[in-house]
Amino acid sequence: MTKIDIFHEETGLTIRNAVADDLARIIELDESSSGINKPDYWQESFRRFGSLQDGRYFLIAEKGSEIVGFIIGEIRAWEFGSQPGGWVFSLTVDPDTRLAGVATLMFNTICQCFRQAGVDKVHTMIDRDNITVMAFFRSQGMMAASTIPLQLSLSDMDNAEEAS
């Protein structure tokens, strides 16, 4: 069980575990960033990662009583041939609160969780057009990993087969 509740005096931010009552604001923050409203996805994410299960982290950043960001990650092992490592797969900050150190504080906190859990590597994946988020992770010291994500368009494959 990983209980997090840390007040950061310098920024006035609190980093703590997400609770069910936070979901509406999380959905709103995600929509303001991604442009897509997806409540089912976030309810399912909360069910999977908000349960304080070992190796799973769903953290929010709060300024006063306002949630200004959230981060989700977990420890995964042996997929894609990789050693156990931390994966950050969601990071969102209120657009009005950017450049205030919110993302850095959340990232540092989840890295500390990974460190305490005994893993050394932290991974993430970003669309290469998402330069803002990629620049953030770069600024935290992340570099290209030895794995390269690949994808296949099944409709292109089907069309090619039909044409041949």
């Binding site: 290469r128 057009d129 330069i131 990629m134 620049a135 770069r138 600024s139 010291g141 290209a144």
Partner: peptide
């Protein structure tokens, strides 16, 4: 595309941090 995304996502400040590290 990969080279472009890499060069576009690394600021001078990030490069200075990398150099220090």
């Amino acid at each position: 595309d990969i080279a472009l995304a890499t060069l576009d996502s690394i600021t001078l400040e990030t490069m200075l941090k990398l150099t220090n590290r």
